[in-house]
Design a binder for these strands. Structure first.
Lengths: 222, 222
DNA sequence: CGCTATCAACTCCTCAGACAAGCTGACAAC
DNA sequence: GTTGTCAGCTTGTCTGAGGAGTTGATAGCG
């Protein structure tokens, strides 16, 4: 699958490259659109679209009448991209860090609503484990794990988990395809045990059980 | 500081809003440029710039000849933004999750180079704690903590730590300003203890010491 | 019937030109 | 020194034209 990039996109890359190379530093004003257009040998509207794209990526900012300014020296590393490129074991270790800490905090902070959520997602997971197709099962599994992290009532941890979710989901699908379909579906007890530890408000136990479960998942992938 | 938004920017917001409201779902094709321009009552080039901006934000993708397609239902939450908005305690708990897990992994994976890095950053930190201005001291402190995470040899954890760093750094500056200047500078021993646990290849000890130290930092902020 | 080649209609891509709107620094007037 | 004015720059927007790629319908062929 080849893909030719439009001129505007190439121009954006070129500008980004020049910014990275230090041609213009933070806060500095770029040459005018007409000048840039002449430099790169493209039309003015093409330059405008390139600038717009970098504005969308929060690298440039244009102010009418004043000019175009650099507001970041490089595109904010796209988290999605980092995760896509990363080894799945690295991602799982990241997830392990987030989730065990989440379980630990959840044990002290869980509300009745959180407990209800555990019961709900657990029964759902049980049902899916018995009969549902892979993607349903994975969805149910993830929903429970998300509920655990959500019970920590920490926006950063929740957001982190959500950003990890797509990558994890894909990895699990691959795993189930290659692997024995039913080996991983039978750890319902392990999940219930995590929820139980949180219900009992035992942080260490919750963290330990969460760690044990995720380590097991991780080890099946090595 | 008032700021009137250009039409193209407003158009981008409007498109984003419509996507969020479900008018077009994932993978779906948007109406043509001319149609959209007529709908929003703006020129074609304005629509093009709006689309370009959303392409930069990885929400839309345009393919010549085919159309413009939705590739994400919402703008990827800018990590920086999330962290800026988040409570500092939430951020510190996130850091705690990353760093204790990092210390644990580092204990099994640390190389001689990592150990050398510990020694180097530790002496640097000691020097800075005695005499350097706040920002130097903080920089030296962060350098050591980063070295610990780096020793885990996990790209995801390292990247996470780096994305947290600016927010943590700012919080520490504030903390030192408001607080007794010298209370926090004297925990050199705690830092050395973490490094020592990693050198001894004791994962549990390394994690425990890391957790203890970061919990203490966290508690000074509540 | 099934497959392939052709092609028209549609899409986005790029350019050029025109004018509007906003900012900035210089300079005159006070 | 302060203020007002303004010329010359900047980006913002629209329009019309033609280029290039995609897609689906259709005709032709085995």
């Amino acid at each position: 699958m080849i893909r030719r990039h439009p001129l505007a996109e190439q121009a954006a890359e070129e500008l980004l490259r020049r910014i990275g190379s230090g041609e213009w530093t933070l806060g500095e004003k770029l040459p005018g659109e007409t000048t840039l257009a002449a430099q790169l040998g493209v039309g003015r509207s093409t330059i405008r679209e390139a600038v717009r794209e970098l504005a969308g990526r929060r690298v440039l900012e244009s102010r009418q009448g004043a000019g175009v300014f650099v507001i970041a020296l490089q595109a904010a590393e796209d988290w999605d991209k980092v995760l896509r490129k990363a080894d799945i074991t690295d991602v799982l270790e990241g997830r392990l860090a987030i989730e065990t800490e989440g379980a630990r905090l959840a044990a002290s902070r869980r509300t009745p609503a959180d407990l209800k959520n555990f019961r709900y997602t657990l029964t759902d997971r049980k049902r899916a484990a018995l009969s549902a197709p892979d993607d349903w099962y994975i969805e149910a599994d993830m929903a429970f794990h998300r509920a655990v992290v959500a019970a920590a009532h920490n926006a950063v941890l929740t957001e982190l988990f959500d950003s990890f979710a797509p990558r994890i989901r894909r990895a699990m699908i691959d795993m189930l395809k290659l692997d024995d379909q039913h080996r991983h579906r039978h750890d319902q007890a392990a999940h219930a045990a995590i929820a139980e530890a949180i219900r009992l408000q035992d942080p260490e136990l919750a963290a330990a059980r969460s760690r044990a479960h995720l380590s097991a998942v991780r080890n099946t992938l090595t």
